[in-house]
Design a protein around this nucleic acid. Structure first.
Lengths: 220, 220
DNA sequence: GACTATCGATAAAT
DNA sequence: ATTTATCGATAGTC
């Protein structure tokens, strides 16, 4: 009985009523489901959606693992469930890849690869560049989280994006603890060119609606 | 007439003339392989490896896109080819997800979800936490890149990992540009607890060999 | 040199 | 049984 109800629940919504079965009784003969094509839109049923998320996430991670094994490449996947829970994968580990991602701009200058062998040294200027991007990311996320910028076909419903991002004042309102070290000063330098970068960044995000799938892109 | 020509064009080129059967009959016998099972280890042939990387990466990105569409979840994938080129995917975009990843610790405390709705405010303390992780990541990446820590079955051949990470002095050797702003001071606060964190972090990485695939994990 | 596009065959998943 | 994701090989692109 329970099973029957469950099956019924999983069934195509258009066939949930007796009338439907009368009209098309053959449909009940679902002995062989096989792999069926599904629409690539948000799954309505919450339970199904969660199950699908778990399954596909597992499959995705597996694929990523295989990719790294087969091709000797570094891979990281970061996912957030609708509930906001984090699931990550990475080879050799997520943080390393993310860090490298943030650092990126090291050996690459407009698709011109300098890094010939295995770069052992990390340019110092690169690290400041990292902070630019990190902070830029903060900006992006901040914006996204309180109004949802792009994302047309997702959980969040995009509304008119705001365009004010001429100054920051939103994240350094924290009381200075015990401070004063020269290690930070260069971070300031990173902040210099950030302003314009962020605005152009946010703008580009506002334009591109769906998702990003970039290859290199100098990321400015 | 036209149709006949079209058909001829569509035909296997190698079998269009009688001569073909006479001259190289055996070579022509190379039946198409089709999808075959392959060992899940590094592909030896460099060309094949690259091709596989491209193809599987595409498949992976597609899957990720579907996951986000179906389940309304945020996803980001970061990959580096062996040549060091970056390929990223993200919904709504990679940076946003990465940023959220770095910020993570907001509503979650030991798998205890506080965040009920859509958190609109970003705790300031969270941001300092972010820097801890960012810097920690730098440490990790630094270590990995100049000696390769984990990764047993990958391009990089892991050798004896070093264990010295008591102090940092590798990244703030940059000449201070024009500096001196209070925006940075709180970053110092972030750096406080970093030292110990990094060491424990690196240690855990040295222990775990293959890859990380964590669900929540308070990440300390 | 590294990466992408395409095609036919087919294994794998459901 | 049908859909999907690769595979191998190769031609073409950056």
């Amino acid at each position: 009985m329970e099973e029957y109800l469950d099956d019924l629940r999983m069934e195509d919504q258009t066939l949930n009523f007796p009338e439907d079965f009368i009209i098309e009784p053959i449909v009940m003969n679902k002995k062989k489901a096989g792999k069926q094509k599904i629409e690539m839109k948000r799954i309505i049923n919450k339970t199904s959606r969660q199950v699908t998320f778990t399954k596909r996430r597992g499959g995705l991670f597996k694929k990523a693992s295989e990719l790294s094994s087969l091709c000797g490449s570094e891979v990281a996947i970061i996912t957030f469930s609708e509930a906001g829970k984090l699931f990550s994968f990475g080879h050799p580990n997520a943080d390393a890849v993310v860090s490298r991602y943030i650092n990126y701009t090291r050996g690459v200058e407009n698709n011109n690869i300098i890094n010939g062998g295995n770069g052992n040294e990390f340019g110092t200027s690169v690290l400041s560049e990292q902070y630019k991007r990190v902070l830029s990311n903060i900006e992006v996320e901040k914006k996204r989280s309180d109004h949802v910028i792009g994302s047309s076909s997702l959980s969040s419903n995009g509304s008119s994006p705001r365009g004010d991002n001429s100054e920051f004042g939103f994240w350094w309102d924290k009381p200075i603890d015990n401070l004063g070290l020269l290690e930070l000063e260069q971070l300031k330098g990173s902040l210099e060119g950030l302003r314009d970068q962020v605005s152009s960044r946010v703008n580009s995000i506002n334009n591109n609606n769906n998702y990003y799938c970039s290859s290199n892109s100098t990321n400015r």
